[in-house]
Design a protein around this nucleic acid. Sequence first.
DNA 1: CTACTTGCAAAGCATTTGCCGGATG
DNA 2: CATCCGGCAAATGCTTTGCAAGTAG
Lengths: 141, 141
Amino acid sequence: MEKELELFERHIQHKGLKRSNQRDCILKTFLKSERHLSAEDLFHMVKQDYPHIGYTTVYRTLRLIVESGIAEVVDFDDGVKRFERKLGREYHAHFICSHCGNHFEAFDVNIKTLSSRLAKEQGFLPQNHRLEIFGICKKCG
Amino acid sequence: MEKELELFERHIQHKGLKRSNQRDCILKTFLKSERHLSAEDLFHMVKQDYPHIGYTTVYRTLRLIVESGIAEVVDFDDGVKRFERKLGREYHAHFICSHCGNHFEAFDVNIKTLSSRLAKEQGFLPQNHRLEIFGICKKCG
DNA sequence: CTACTTGCAAAGCATTTGCCGGATG
DNA sequence: CATCCGGCAAATGCTTTGCAAGTAG
């Protein structure tokens, strides 16, 4: 969490912006939460501390969070963007069940290895990668 | 192309729907085209044959195409869904340049192998997978 | 004090739905 | 001739922007 706060601070400074209680609250709520939050999820969580918070502020802060390198966007093809913490999570794949819509993840070091090798072969400088696997989960199968 | 037409026919039949010149034209245009078409791209291409075509019909037919198993959705985080042919293309990764926005792909048999192994470990029945790598391309690097 | 932030309301954008004349089998 | 199709216009749902009052440094 320290690392993330520092990244956020640095990004805010770098863009000549200011911190605020709302931004801090949104960031901390995001960091405390489970994975795969939508803007709406986060909005409702923050609303408990800031009843007057608006979607606007949540969206704007999420943008800052992504720009800071703290989080990244994931997409499960249901029309909603979700956000997840990035740091130290480079080795995981997302599983999305096409029957119940639930998703979970799995870690495997080879995901990073494979992405890095492919990128190198293409003369591409990789910053980030996503592996999503769609199918039927244990419960639905 | 034969294989895809058959899949489409079967899906149409199965749902008790009818074929039409527009649907055939949209499907054939899609199949003839390059990869990674947005609905808008396809709309403009089909408009050359059917000046009165509407977005609606393109969207509805794209849905049928995806349902038939002919194509799948890819997402480059720019707010637009893109569609690409599915058959025989299980071994590729997408590279998206975060500077110029261009994208290309690379084939590697290990992508499928890795996805299948991970899914097996999770008791998950995989139907489909996506590997997207974001970063800086050769030109922009 | 100046510039940034907030949150409401309104706009924007890709996509979907309602409707009804028109086509298909 | 019952049912599905096609395309316009309107609606939808997520996300962004404009604006005027409020706040940070």
